[in-house]
Measured scan of single mutants.
Amino acid sequence: CHSECLGNCSQPDDPTKCVACRNFYLDGRCVETCPPPYYHFQDWRCVNFSFCQDLHHKCKNSRRQGCHQYVIHNNKCIPECPSGYTMNSSNLLCTPCLGPCPKVCHLLEGEKTIDSVTSAQELRGCTVINGSLIINIRGGNNLAAELEANLGLIEEISGYLKIRRSYALVSLSFFRKLRLIRGETLEIGNYSFYALDNQNLRQLWDWSKHNLTITQGKLFFHYNPKLCLSEIHKMEEVSGTKGRQERNDIALKTNGDQASCENELLKFSYIRTSFDKILLRWEPYWPPDFRDLLGFMLFYKEAPYQNVTEFDGQDACGSNSWTVVDIDPPLRSNDPKSQNHPGWLMRGLKPWTQYAIFVKTLVTFSDERRTYGAKSDIIYVQTDATNPSVPLDPISVSNSSSQIILKWKPPSDPNGNITHYLVFWERQAEDSELFELDYCLKGLKLPSRTWSPPFESEDSQKHNQSEYEDSAGECCSCPKTDSQILKELEESSFRKTFEDYLHNVVFVPRKT
């Protein structure tokens, strides 16, 4: 048989008469490798580009789960590009990614509803959504962080984005990388972005840091009482949809009607710091009717980097990364020049730590249904340095008659930039024990000054392991946590139920 035959053949030295091919099969003959313009397919066939392209389009058009959109890589027609490569849609070739590779997620039936953290986790790592997304989240724990972890990498949506009755959302900033909504599939009414009845939605994105392009379709905003109209108009300008909307697409009466839409800028007039305090004062603000001013709200939190936005980490279910302080308005003076500047002394802060701070007014709604208010920009203030805590785990070892090696770990709280350490030492008198000992005694162990690591005695271990207080009263049991108490109650309830079950099964009433 021919060298490319495997198993047997019907005619000697003829690659077209093989029972099976050793390498690849091409047009009725066995070959060692697939010549151009053919590609290896499933490690035994040679196919042309049209064959591989037909497989790709067949799966793409069917949208069946589990099928493969075949691509070409290293002269092979394979189910998908290997790690580190992405497909070129024009020629199906796998090309190296520039940075992290995109991950295209194809949605069944063309859309997916995100109504819980669990459903959001199914899209973790996706960068391109081939379909439409509907966000409908009523509640949950730590929602802002969970949504950002699972949806934060999405850069492109081919269909539309719909935010509907998501009472738990305060902001859409968890879509931190969303840059493009194509609108290839539109919501009824030709809408590519749809926001309806979101009672706590206050911000779409921080438009000073976020760009969003909507290729096709219109915007729809109705019944978002805490979303200011200025935020919607800003989205029109940034996304390129200005002029597409009709009169009733953006409701003037049901958007922002319960919001404090600040239209003035508060400026800080005085800032002073110490290692654990920050004193702030800002310019006074009074609405047209000074009785509408209820006070100020001061927001602050630790910020290692200057990239904080107002609604980071917030949701309507209680999660809030900001510390909020309510401040009463100052006494009002008739003389504008003698107006008191409101302020606040922030206490209990960490030394040498940068804080993000902003302040906003708290006002009631005027009778004319106009909203007044003022808010400052987010500023960054760093507390002063102070003395560091003591170095940890000092170790001293003498390696000769004239040297001592000293080692330690950095302090747990540096409280500033540590530039150097101060080492103090003092000579001590020799131990009298060394002169009084009889060095001729056998088995004498000389006193040693070398360091030995501390260890816990058996008594201390027994005390720590004991669940009861000892007789001397030195140790006591740790208080039980809520989960331990709940577990004990469940076990007790189970024992009672099981005992009742045994009584009912074992003891049967005697027939009379």
Rank of each mutant, 00 (worst) to 15 (best):
F311G: 05
K407S: 09
R179W: 09
P391S: 03
T213W: 05
V397R: 07
L108S: 12
A149Q: 13
L406M: 07
M297L: 14
L123N: 01
D393A: 15
K209S: 08
R244C: 06
M346L: 10
A303M: 05
G240N: 05
P388L: 14
S166W: 01
T273I: 10
G373A: 03
I137A: 11
L219H: 03
N387L: 04
Q199D: 15
D367T: 10
R164P: 05
I134V: 11
A251Q: 13
F290R: 04
L153M: 12
S333N: 01
L169K: 01
S402A: 15
Q245R: 10
F174P: 06
R291C: 09
T361P: 01
G240Y: 15
F221I: 15
K301G: 05
T254G: 14
G110S: 14
P284A: 13
Q245M: 14
D115M: 04
Q199I: 11
I154N: 01
R369V: 09
E156F: 03
N141T: 08
C126F: 01
S401T: 10
S319M: 15
S208H: 04
L180E: 10
N130W: 03
R138L: 15
V397P: 15
L153K: 13
A145I: 08
C228T: 03
T323H: 14
Q121A: 09
N150P: 05
N141S: 09
P287K: 03
T213N: 05
L362Q: 03
A303L: 04
N334C: 09
R179I: 12
K226S: 07
A149F: 14
E262L: 02
Q258D: 11
L201M: 02
S389P: 03
C228E: 01
L229G: 04
F193I: 09
F290T: 05
N340W: 13
L392N: 06
L169N: 01
S208M: 06
H106P: 10
I278K: 01
L108W: 14
I379C: 13
N340M: 03
S319Y: 13
K209L: 08
I188E: 14
S192P: 02
K177R: 09
V325I: 15
Y380F: 12
Q258N: 02
P304H: 15
L169P: 08
P394K: 11
G125Y: 03
R369W: 10
Q382S: 15
Q199C: 14
G110N: 04
R369A: 04
I154G: 00
L161N: 00
Q382L: 06
W286R: 08
T386G: 04
Q121T: 10
K337N: 14
R244V: 08
A316N: 10
S116G: 15
T273E: 06
L219A: 10
A195Y: 00
R247F: 12
A385W: 06
D257Q: 11
K162S: 14
K407W: 15
Y194S: 09
F311Q: 11
I188N: 02
I181H: 00
M235L: 13
N263E: 15
V381S: 03
T113F: 05
K103I: 14
N334K: 15
E155T: 06
S119Q: 03
E236L: 07
D197M: 06
S376G: 01
N141M: 15
P388F: 06
F268V: 09
R124Y: 01
N340Y: 08
N307A: 14
W344C: 04
M297P: 00
T254Q: 15
I157S: 00
S192H: 01
H233R: 05
L345A: 02
E156A: 05
P287T: 12
E246R: 12
L294F: 06
G131P: 01
T213G: 13
Y191H: 10
G152T: 02
I188V: 11
R202P: 01
Y160L: 03
G313S: 05
K209W: 07
R176N: 04
F268S: 01
T118K: 09
K162G: 15
K360Q: 02
I357S: 01
S173P: 02
K112T: 05
R370P: 13
K350I: 02
G139K: 11
